[in-house]
């Protein structure tokens, strides 16, 4: 059992106060991204829901119904999720709409991933939405909080710390899979990454999709792949260390962001949530940007009235 003083120290770190505005802005920015993500995929979701039932392989919460749902019902749920998403962004009746939206979003993306392929780039977005939906993320920057200015509190700090912890842990889990996989630590030689790039280019070309133009050019650069593999492993296995200090965390987030753009350049694999930078916002004091935007709008408003 951990000693009482260790628990107290951990609690002090975990419950470090944060401004309500930071959590509120994260709700708006991440909720806004999720809305954009889902709204653009309405047609695809409708088509996926009409796929051959033989191909349905439920994952996560979609396992509660072993057979696919009628396409019409899925379509309705997509629209219900979008409506709840708007309430979530606005912070309207968050105690009800927050859990409702995050639950619908979890189910919908689990269902979307239940057709023979799991899209790992969606995982952290769902975990972040769940955290924001189930915590007091609408105590600022919301309709619920109109006319209120809640003080900085531990209640707004721990959800952000949880989001950051889950973000770095997903990278750590991914790193463990590489060194525990069939290649073990030899994954760091870069050979596996190089083969992965080649297989990906082959798939894209044979399945009629635009391939990454850099893949054939870089394939013979064995040293470059070794460097990339070592860098990736360090970033993934060392991810939990980023939690030790906020500047370390921000440096790590910037490198993870660049890693995904590097993957895109070499393999044309799009990790949208990561590449947009939305995934790493919780590592930063986003309320400063929010305050700056408000000041700017107020100044423009004043200038317009003169």
């Amino acid at each position: 059992m951990p000693s009482a003083s260790l628990v107290a120290k951990l609690a002090a770190v975990w419950f470090t106060p944060a401004p309500a505005a930071r959590l509120g802005l994260l709700r708006i920015l991440i909720g806004g991204w999720a809305f954009y993500y889902l709204a653009r995929r309405r047609k695809m979701m409708r088509q996926v829901a009409a796929t051959d039932p033989h191909l349905f392989a439920p994952v996560g919460v979609a396992k509660v119904h072993p057979a696919p749902l009628p396409a019409r019902l899925v379509n309705m749920l997509v629209h219900a999720t979008l409506v709840a998403n708007v309430a979530f962004i606005l912070g309207w009746r968050h105690r009800v709409t927050g859990p409702l939206y995050s639950g619908l979003f979890l189910w919908l993306l689990s269902y979307r991933n239940s057709w023979s392929m799991i899209f790992h780039n969606d995982n952290v977005m769902v975990l972040h939405i769940l955290t924001l939906g189930l915590t007091r993320s609408a105590d600022a920057w919301s309709l619920d909080a109109l006319g209120k200015r809640p003080p900085t509190s531990w209640q707004y700090g721990w959800p952000i710390r949880l989001m950051n912890t889950m973000t770095v842990l997903t990278y750590f889990v991914s790193g463990v899979a590489k060194v525990k996989g069939p290649l073990g630590w030899t994954w760091a030689t870069g050979e596996s990454l190089r083969s992965q790039v080649a297989v990906d280019a082959l798939r894209k070309e044979l399945l009629g999709s635009a391939g990454a133009p850099l893949a054939p050019r870089l394939y013979h650069a064995v040293g470059l792949f070794r460097l990339l593999a070592i860098g990736s492993l360090a970033l993934e296995l060392g991810a939990p260390l980023a939690l030790a200090h906020r500047w370390l965390a921000r440096g790590w987030a910037a490198n993870a962001f660049l890693l995904h753009w590097g993957i895109y350049a070499v393999m044309k694999i799009t990790f949208r949530y990561q590449m947009a930078g939305i995934m790493y916002l919780s590592f930063f004091e986003v309320e400063r940007v929010g305050a700056w935007v408000l000041t700017w709008i107020a100044r423009r408003w004043e200038e317009g009235r003169r």
């Binding site: 994952v59 996560g60 979890l106 993306l109 689990s110 991933n113 239940s114 799991i118 790992h120 969606d122 995982n123 952290v124 769902v126 975990l127 997903t170 889990v173 991914s174 463990v176 899979a177 590489k178 525990k180 996989g181 069939p182 290649l183 994954w187 596996s192 990454l193 083969s195 992965q196 080649a198 297989v199």
Partner: peptide, 15 residues
């Protein structure tokens, strides 16, 4: 593998 809780096996296979 599952969703959203995964062991992230992508890129770990031997090709």
């Amino acid at each position: 593998d599952s969703f959203p809780l995964s062991y992230y096996p992508m890129f770990s296979a031997k090709r």
